[in-house]
Write a protein that binds this DNA or RNA. Sequence first.
DNA 1: GAGGACAGGTCTATAATAGAGACCGCCTTC
DNA 2: GAAGGCGGTCTCTATTATAGACCTGTCCTC
Lengths: 141, 141
Amino acid sequence: MNSRSTVDSLFGAMQSDTFDATQCPVRNILDRIGDKWTSLVLVALADRPHRFSELQRAAPDISKRMLTQTLRQLERDGLITRQVFPTKPPAVQYQLSPLGVSVLEPLGHLIDWANRSYDQILSARAEYDSANPASALPVNA
Amino acid sequence: MNSRSTVDSLFGAMQSDTFDATQCPVRNILDRIGDKWTSLVLVALADRPHRFSELQRAAPDISKRMLTQTLRQLERDGLITRQVFPTKPPAVQYQLSPLGVSVLEPLGHLIDWANRSYDQILSARAEYDSANPASALPVNA
DNA sequence: GAGGACAGGTCTATAATAGAGACCGCCTTC
DNA sequence: GAAGGCGGTCTCTATTATAGACCTGTCCTC
């Protein structure tokens, strides 16, 4: 039933019938990139290495717990490195690894698209909401 | 390899001090792109328009509820269109809008990166986990 | 040598979210 | 007239995120 005509070479693997979506590399990674804080941290670190509390200040609405978790995941995935300096008050520096740097380029494309398209999306939302006034997202209501 | 200057200009706005992260277009959109099902749906629709149940079959582990919700959001954001055909059993067709098509390119870059980097990430994870055996992610434990 | 400030976290309790799966009205097919 | 597909919605429960208190140090000041 499922048309397995794989037109696009990029998406082909994701569209084949035998594809096991539950252990998809792409989904695995998109889940990480897309979560609420990861990309923010990556962008902050794109500029220069940051200490823990610098990152906290850069994104004031992230809780310590979430920041720790995000950083751990990124470290585990090899996108950032964590360096502890045994200075007077021990300092911890996070910085992008080469792999982490390499994600900035595709991420940058997406950010660029987001910026370019934001207006369109906002007006699409406004239009949708005015067309569906009472039940914008009935599933959630 | 990586055009650092481009990155800087792209991320500049996100790095400024006055930047209000809570209503950041990019985060807004990344949250959507990055959520568990959105990109999967987009990729499926990249091939051709799909009906509701076709999408369900394409991603067997998505529940109807989540699929509905994902589609509503995408429709609201103007990335896909929803067309109801009053046929014998009424059919609903979802397809990408021009805006939806336009996101495929940056998304494709990211997917491409994910595929290329997956091995590195896996081995980074393995290394991390063997270096931190008991407490891979203590925050969650 | 007590008190406070900071760093870099961890722990707990609660709110929000995702997910499974039952249900529904309508139609067609057996 | 029973069964099954379509395109959903609804309810209930498990998972996850978030806020915010707490903790272990090391300074520094008094």
